[in-house]
Computed example of a mutant assay.
Amino acid sequence: MDDDFLGMLIVSALIVGAICGRIGAILAARKNLRTWAGLLLGFFFGPLGVLLIAVTPSNPDPAPKGMKSVVCQTCNARQNIPTDDQIHDCWQCKRQLTPSL
């Protein structure tokens, strides 16, 4: 292989890796995943890493401070309730539930 061709190949691979890494980081941030993981997957695996991040399911948003996130056992609705609440009403099915931890 010619040295110029090899140099261009390395530069091209770095450019594609940087672009895919950036896209992976953006996708991971939008899906509430770890941004650095999206960056590394995109950089090292290129379009395959971006595709992997695109098909990965999103993480739910974390509960605000002083709240905890619970899922209704009846209708699977996710809701935030105060941390010290032992009994709550589901906002969707209106059933009174006790949170399971």
Score class of each variant (00 low, 15 high):
13 A>V: 07
23 I>H: 00
42 G>F: 06
49 G>W: 09
48 L>Q: 10
24 G>I: 04
28 A>F: 08
33 L>T: 05
14 L>S: 08
30 R>K: 15
40 L>C: 14
19 I>W: 03
47 P>Y: 14
21 G>M: 04
28 A>V: 08
15 I>C: 12
50 V>P: 00
31 K>A: 02
14 L>D: 01
38 G>S: 09
19 I>V: 15
38 G>N: 08
24 G>T: 03
48 L>G: 04
16 V>K: 13
40 L>H: 05
43 F>Y: 15
25 A>D: 03
20 C>L: 05
43 F>W: 09
23 I>P: 00
26 I>T: 12
43 F>E: 07
39 L>P: 00
28 A>N: 05
37 A>W: 09
20 C>T: 13
32 N>W: 02
30 R>E: 09
36 W>M: 13
41 L>Y: 13
26 I>Y: 01
43 F>C: 09
17 G>P: 00
31 K>I: 09
37 A>K: 13
37 A>V: 15
12 S>C: 07
21 G>F: 02
16 V>M: 10
14 L>T: 06
32 N>E: 05
19 I>T: 10
33 L>P: 01
20 C>V: 06
12 S>T: 14
38 G>K: 12
13 A>S: 14
42 G>Q: 04
39 L>T: 04
31 K>F: 01
20 C>K: 06
29 A>W: 00
22 R>W: 10
34 R>C: 03
18 A>S: 14
25 A>N: 02
16 V>D: 03
17 G>Y: 04
20 C>F: 10
34 R>W: 03
38 G>E: 04
22 R>Y: 12
30 R>W: 03
15 I>Q: 05
41 L>M: 14
29 A>S: 15
33 L>K: 14
28 A>Y: 06
34 R>S: 14
14 L>P: 00
41 L>D: 01
46 G>A: 10
27 L>E: 09
50 V>K: 04
42 G>C: 07
19 I>S: 03
17 G>W: 02
47 P>F: 15
16 V>C: 11
41 L>T: 10
26 I>R: 14
17 G>C: 07
36 W>F: 12
28 A>W: 05
35 T>Y: 00
31 K>T: 03
15 I>F: 12
16 V>N: 08
34 R>T: 13
12 S>V: 09
26 I>M: 09
32 N>Q: 11
29 A>Y: 00
12 S>R: 12
48 L>D: 02
17 G>M: 05
37 A>Q: 13
12 S>W: 04
46 G>F: 10
50 V>N: 05
18 A>H: 01
27 L>T: 03
